[in-house]
Design a protein around this nucleic acid. Structure first.
Ligand SMILES: NC(=O)c1ccc[n+]([C@@H]2O[C@H](COP(=O)([O-])OP(=O)(O)OC[C@H]3O[C@@H](n4cnc5c(N)ncnc54)[C@H](O)[C@@H]3O)[C@@H](O)[C@H]2O)c1
Ligand SMILES: NC(=O)c1ccc[n+]([C@@H]2O[C@H](COP(=O)([O-])OP(=O)(O)OC[C@H]3O[C@@H](n4cnc5c(N)ncnc54)[C@H](O)[C@@H]3O)[C@@H](O)[C@H]2O)c1
Lengths: 217, 217
DNA sequence: GCTAGTTTGTGAACGAATTCACAAGGCTCG
DNA sequence: CGAGCCTTGTGAATTCGTTCACAAACTAGC
């Protein structure tokens, strides 16, 4: 640490684990909202989320102070704040690549639309699938991808094709300027630093279970 | 730390992040095996896996020493060792609860069987679905669950039903003595400490992307 | 309006995970 | 078989994330 430390470094980078927990807190707050609770303590959020009250307060403290000492947090106020922090105050345009079993399940899943993720289209390279729809969502030919993106400007792409083609498709996605990608293929993908790639790797989770079963003392 | 520190505490607990990386290394080793490469360096594994060579060596060092100085690691030897460590040297019996879109996709997914995860059956509470099959896997009535488990002894259960019923189903799973659960419902589940529960939460990953998009300076 | 009782917000302490850095070991080639 | 080169394995240093602990701020009850 020296005197030339850049000012912007003072804005602490937020840990991924913190962001994940904010998602969890928001989910509980939405339950509480439905039930009509008006306030909630860090202790209660912690119990439900499987963490500690200090952790909850620390997580929130990176973004401001949302509570009232002696009382807790206002459920609607904290929900609003968390939605704002997580960028859920708006709609995001999403495209899915791959109209297979996973791609179709995702396209038909209501939970995404509910949270503001609007699926524009599903792309596939198989001519048999192109032209059909999945709950009203078009399956389009992959060759249209770049020109469609230019016009419709999706912010998020989901990769749901077999591992072999995944890096190549990611490269195409990156070239269109999309900066956020969710990958379901069980391969490690490489992208420039300004593109955020998250992976949902079920095989890896199962292997984690296998490890846990094999190594209990 | 005092002089009564239990001996078994010396066997360091392995970090979850380490186990996840071992999965990733194994995937590359399998690619290398196919291509006929005989040795690989920590540097190369690191490059492919998006980490550092020191990290690779440290991860492996928790379990023994598998390499040759000056040369690297033997691909077949390291693969075998990793499969052993991850508990993939054997077959695991798996049951899926919920024959909906996700449950069906999982049941039909070949990647699991390939890695030794043998799906015994899918359970559902909807009488319309019970009795059908998914690629040869029976959909059974949920009421049979406990007696089937007693007989067939699955080690792993996968929860693929809506969030509302998930905790209740987890409690049933726990009562049968199953110690490893993979959860796809977007809710935080609570289980005794001796039961490992891993979650695949796609909504949370998407929210992580939303956060990243909203907070790029 | 004072006291007792809560709960937040946050530095400081701690602990866990990653990275550094280098000695030790092994291979190759002359 | 010795010099030069390469790569592992691992303590030590560092960085990152969590937990502790308590002053500050608020409520409620009297
Ligand atoms: N099905 C599961 O339960 C499951 C579980 C874990 C991981 N995955 C992974 O998710 C991915 C998709 O799995 P799935 O079961 O849906 O596969 P699938 O075979 O059912 O579907 C893949 C689809 O992608 C299309 N496709 C292939 N290459 C393409 C390309 N280059 N461009 C556009 N479209 C292309 C195919 O035409 C097909 O429609 C795979 O990587 C798989 O490993 C699936
Ligand atoms: N479909 C997706 O792409 C997707 C994405 C992310 C998360 N999820 C989550 O995965 C879970 C399943 O999603 P889905 O799309 O497959 O839902 P779905 O509605 O297609 O299927 C759910 C199935 O579970 C059965 N079921 C309900 N309650 C049950 C119970 N108590 N015992 C046994 N069976 C029961 C239903 O009969 C139905 O067949 C949900 O929690 C959902 O939020 C799904």
């Amino acid at each position: 640490m020296n005197e030339f430390t850049r000012l912007d470094a003072i804005v602490k980078r937020i840990a991924e684990s913190t962001v994940r927990r904010l998602s969890i807190y928001l989910r509980f707050l939405e339950e509480f909202e439905v039930r009509g609770s008006t306030t909630v303590s860090s202790e209660e959020l912690a119990r439900r989320g499987g963490t500690t009250s200090a952790q909850v307060r620390k997580d929130l403290s990176f973004f401001g102070s949302f509570g009232k000492r002696g009382l807790g947090y206002s459920v609607p106020e904290l929900s609003t704040a968390l939605r704002e922090i997580l960028g859920l105050g708006r709609e995001w345009r999403v495209v899915i690549i791959g109209a297979g079993k996973i791609g179709a399940a995702l396209a038909q899943y209501r939970g995404f639309r509910q949270r503001g993720f609007n699926i524009l289209a599903v792309y596939d390279s198989n001519p048999e699938k192109v032209g059909r729809t999945l709950e009203g969502i078009e399956i389009r030919d992959m060759s249209r991808f770049e020109s469609d993106v230019e016009r419709e400007r999706p912010e998020i792409a989901v990769i749901a094709i077999p591992g072999e083609g995944a890096q190549e498709v990611l490269d195409r996605i990156v070239r269109t300027g999309i900066k956020a990608v969710l990958n379901f293929a069980p391969v490690q993908l490489h992208a420039p630093a300004d593109v955020t790639v998250k992976a949902v790797n079920m095989a890896m989770e199962l292997e984690g279970l296998s490890f846990a079963l094999s190594n209990r003392d």
